[in-house]
């Protein structure tokens, strides 16, 4: 019986085994850094030639817009690291969290509303993670389906648009602290926490291992299903936090709040240099990616381009980065 088990698990392991060693090879990191440098120089060159880009006010504008995308990008990176691509409803979930938070606010008070929104985000994503991790469901399909369900549930149960209730002040969620917007601090705190979690906790490191090589992780006895569930749950927490901050920022919430957040977050996560198929990535890279995406967006805005052009550029950048990150894997097939 044991022999059967070994042969059943083996082909996958032997087939996948060479990939990480090649990816981690000493020769592969130098060109990648060079590539990163090229992008950085190109973006800065374009940015510096844009009128009005170099100013304190504009730097502040970039920093305040980077937070929402950034927190979602951190969540996206955690999902990517677990080897499950990305959530295609993370923007929708952020909008749903935002609505839920404002809906709960007048009845239960601020602290409880925050907690309940976090729990809801955690649970929603953990459920998706369980389907993906334990049953090998496809992450893209599961997250799209879950997104449609959330839209349906919210349309059914909540009013179309939720306002900040009278007599409640959540203005501090957007107020400047020491000259910088409050969401920025939350973003950096979340990134730092997730970075530490991924790097220093056993669970975090195991999540990375699952994404690196699921078959090997399973063979080593790691609870892969549970780890993927946890990875999604962490992304859910990030999403709920973004939703709460968005509620403070917009002073109301509806489904349209989601805007282009899903794509912004995925683009930021990929542009930061985290691998889409897992094995490489960190919260710090998500911060870098979010700053790059926010800078590109800001630059296009200053040059008078609309949202469409920004999304177009994001898409092209995603394709380019994916091509650049994988080009040495031609030999594997």
């Amino acid at each position: 019986m044991t022999a059967e088990n070994v042969t059943a698990a083996d082909p996958d392991t032997t087939v996948r085994a060479p990939v990480p060693s090649e990816r981690r090879g000493p020769s592969s990191s130098a060109p990648r850094m060079l590539w990163g440098l090229v992008v950085l120089v190109a973006v800065s060159a374009l940015a510096l030639t844009t009128d009005g880009f170099v100013s304190v006010a504009n730097a502040r504008a970039i920093l305040s817009s980077v937070s929402f995308t950034g927190i979602l990008a951190v969540g996206t990176v955690v999902i990517m690291l677990s080897g499950n691509l990305f959530s295609l409803s993370i923007g929708t979930s952020a909008a749903v969290s935002s609505m839920l938070f404002l809906y709960l606010l007048p009845d239960v008070g601020f602290v409880l509303a925050v907690l309940l929104t976090l729990v809801a985000g955690y649970a929603t994503f953990a459920l998706q993670g369980a389907i993906v991790g334990r049953l090998d469901g496809n992450a893209i399909i599961v997250t799209i389906g879950a997104g449609a369900l959330q839209v349906g549930a919210v349309t059914w149960l909540l009013p179309g648009s939720v306002q900040v209730p009278d007599g409640v002040d959540i203005g501090f969620l957007t107020r400047s602290v020491l000259g910088l917007p409050f969401p920025l601090y939350v973003f950096l705190a979340v990134a730092l926490l997730v970075q530490c979690w991924l790097h220093y906790s056993a669970t975090g490191r195991q999540v990375e291992l699952v994404g690196e090589n699921k078959a090997a992780a399973r063979a080593a006895g790691l609870p892969t299903g549970k780890l993927v569930t946890v990875a999604f749950a962490v992304a859910g927490l990030c999403t709920a936090i973004t939703g709460i901050l968005l509620a403070g920022f917009n002073q109301n919430a509806n489904l349209a709040v989601s805007g282009t957040f899903t794509f912004d977050a995925i683009a930021a996560a990929i542009v930061g240099g985290s691998s889409v198929i897992g094995g490489r990535g960190s919260a710090a890279r998500a911060v870098l990616g979010a700053v790059i995406i926010a800078t590109i967006a800001n630059m296009l805005l200053l040059r008078g381009f609309g949202t469409g052009v920004r999304v177009l550029v994001e898409g092209i950048v995603v394709v380019l980065v994916v091509v650049a990150a994988q080009r040495r894997k031609r030999s594997i097939a």
């Binding site: 990929i270 999304v311 994001e314 898409g315 994916v322 091509v323 994988q326």
Partner: peptide, 15 residues
């Protein structure tokens, strides 16, 4: 380039 088609096609879709 042996790219993961989900990632490439997401980029193309966004573009």
């Amino acid at each position: 380039f042996r790219l993961p088609s989900a990632a490439v096609s997401l980029g193309v879709y966004i573009a």
